[in-house]
Amino acid sequence: MKLLILFASPRPRGNTAQLLEKITEVFDESVEITRFDLYGMDLKSCIACRRCQKVTDSFHCVHDDDMQEIFDAALESDLILFATPIYSFYCTPPMKIVMDRLVYGMCKYYGETMGPSLWAGKTIALLSTFGYPEEKASDLLVEGLRRYAKHNKLNFLGAYGERQRSYKEPFMNAEVEKRARAFAEKLMAYDDNLN
Rank of each mutant, 00 (worst) to 15 (best):
N15E: 07
Y104L: 15
A8W: 08
K150M: 09
S9V: 03
I80V: 05
M106V: 13
D139Q: 12
S88I: 11
L102W: 15
D65L: 09
M95I: 13
K153D: 13
C49H: 04
Q53F: 09
F59G: 13
Y87C: 11
D66Y: 02
L157P: 00
L141G: 08
A159K: 03
N173G: 08
P133F: 00
H151Y: 12
G144I: 01
V31D: 06
Y167H: 12
E162R: 12
A149R: 01
A184C: 03
K122E: 04
T129R: 04
D28P: 06
L118Y: 02
D64T: 10
I47P: 12
R179I: 07
E162I: 02
D66G: 03
P116F: 04
G131V: 04
R147S: 14
C61T: 10
G40L: 05
N15I: 06
D42K: 08
V55F: 09
K168N: 14
Q53L: 09
T56E: 12
S128A: 14
K150N: 08
M106W: 10
I80E: 01
W119L: 13
I33T: 02
M41T: 06
L75I: 14
M1C: 05
D100R: 10
N193E: 12
E76D: 14
N155M: 07
E134Q: 07
M114Q: 13
I70Q: 06
S45M: 14
A74G: 10
Y132I: 07
T129D: 06
C46H: 07
F156A: 02
R165V: 11
A120Q: 01
M41F: 08
N195T: 13
W119S: 15
L4D: 01
R101S: 02
G14N: 04
C91M: 15
A8S: 09
K122S: 05
E32V: 09
E69R: 09
R50Y: 14
G111P: 00
Y110N: 15
S9Q: 00
K153N: 12
A149N: 07
K186W: 04
H60T: 08
N195Q: 11
V26D: 00
V26I: 06
F130T: 03
Y87H: 14
K122T: 06
F7K: 01
T34Q: 02
L81G: 00
Y132S: 14
Y167G: 10
V103I: 15
S166D: 03
F171L: 02
G121L: 05
G131F: 10
A8G: 05
M106E: 10
H60S: 12
A159E: 01
K178Y: 13
S88M: 15
C49W: 02
M172V: 11
K2A: 02
F89V: 09
C61E: 09
T84V: 06
L79N: 08
H60L: 10
Q53V: 07
D78M: 04
G105Y: 02
I5N: 00
S9K: 01
F171G: 04
G40V: 03
E162N: 08
Q68Y: 11
A17S: 05
E177A: 13
A17W: 07
F171Q: 00
G14P: 05
